[in-house]
Design a protein around this nucleic acid. Structure first.
Lengths: 245, 245
DNA sequence: AACCAATAATTGGTCAGACCACTTTGCGAC
DNA sequence: GTCGCAAAGTGGTCTGACCAATTATTGGTT
């Protein structure tokens, strides 16, 4: 039953082990409640040291995918929120889900998220969001796309709702959108417009105007969405899709 | 600089180490970019084995609070996306408002999901939903709670949107809610009312009335949601976060 | 046969020492 | 001063061992 682990470039060993378990779980070989072989046995099967196995299990545990109980064993758990979002993120990566679908989810979530944030954001939250926009401005002025600050803004918005479950779900979605966002921001003028939208959203949040925050976010997403759906090279003829208005 | 680690009840050693680092970061002793002592040095200072230090560092790394670089060292990172939420949630008890948070996410998602389903459901989708309701009726008449059919209805509803990403997100939420749903359905009369709500939603979907489907779902969720989950300080009364239209 | 307590086996948690691979540092030759 | 290479520093991994909690087994008593 011994199986080799393909040692990819620059990847740590325990990370490769984690990926193997992810695959086993997604493929159904390991379901909820399954008991893992003992650490010593796993180490022998995978031909690695026990320490590496333990670090891998520690990772799975933090991802909510496993629970270790002293004396009894380690068990797979696929029903925790962490577990599901972890598996979701890694399967999004394999592009099983269309980018368009993910944008739609985002379009369902984020406007309401902005509304919630407008109701609950503390001064601290606003300060954090504000700092991110300053950073985004700086990046843009230096000719960068500001994609990092852009992503971080959406993420910080989620934390401003003070709903940890919402943060996890949104960050799973945003994670996937990061690459396409980078692509989208390559278009001239786009970074600045994105920043302007963000400022508008933040203003509404500061004012506690949840309806305004929601529609500002809807506006922002609608402006960003269409062009990003089309991968580079498949861009439709003109820029009428990029209606910033 | 050696310092003892207080070994709390039932806590693993590497978890205690992680908490110590959390404290150091929150108190400001470790700021962004700080380089940690070498693993061997840390082990000696804390009077623990190097393996425990490594498992602690692995945890910090997964929480986005640290980055290890082979050959150079381990560095604190408080600016990553994960880092902020980790520090935010580490002060709270984890599962206190957790359930409330998840319900809130659901409340954000499902009404819109119902609206989407109303727009896109095929005859096949409607047939599937209808069959599930028949099964739910059967289970209830036999005295069961019908929790399985109940969960399946929400899942099938997600499928009817024909958005695979949305299905994953929703099933993530529903998976976690399954246990609490079973509990909720124990109350007399609850299963039948749930079934009635489902029928109403399905009617709206069959009619293609997306606004009606959305409000029917909102009605359903509000009826099912446990009422007394509002944390202290929050205002349960007036501000309905999920305003229709 | 059934039950219960003592014991053994299993398993995760921790520690120690060693070696390898990558990075940085610093010294010496030029 | 600069370049090149060796040495030191550091994370990554392996081996073997012991401790602690749990579970399975055993053996005797009723």
């Amino acid at each position: 039953m011994q199986s080799e682990l393909q040692n990819l470039d620059g990847q740590r060993l325990h990370e490769a082990i984690v990926e193997r378990f992810h695959a086993l779980i997604k493929q159904g070989s390991l379901e909820h409640g399954s008991k893992l072989p003992a650490e010593r046995v796993l180490a022998e099967q995978l031909k690695v040291g026990r320490g590496s196995v333990r670090e891998a299990i520690r990772t799975l545990e933090l991802q909510g995918l496993a629970v270790s109980k002293h004396g009894s064993g380690t068990f797979i758990n696929t029903q925790s929120l962490d577990a599901v979002t972890t598996l979701m993120t890694s399967s999004f990566g394999t592009s099983e889900a269309q980018l368009h679908d993910i944008f739609e989810v985002r379009h369902l979530l984020e406007p309401q998220l902005a509304a919630l944030a407008a109701k609950r954001a503390t001064l601290e939250d606003v300060a954090r969001l504000s700092a991110i926009l300053v950073e985004q401005q700086r990046q843009i002025m230096e000719g960068e796309t500001g994609v990092d600050a852009d992503t971080e803004f959406h993420f910080a918005l989620a934390t401003a709702t003070h709903n940890t479950a919402l943060v996890k779900v949104v960050s799973a979605v945003e994670d996937v959108l990061r690459q396409s966002r980078d692509q989208s921001l390559q278009q001239p003028g786009r970074p600045q417009r994105s920043l302007d939208s963000h400022r508008q959203i933040l203003e509404m949040i500061q004012a506690g105007d949840h309806l305004g925050a929601r529609s500002a976010m809807e506006h922002h997403l609608t402006a960003v969405e269409p062009s990003a759906v089309y991968p580079a090279g498949a861009t439709p003829n003109s820029d009428n899709l990029i209606t910033t208005s």
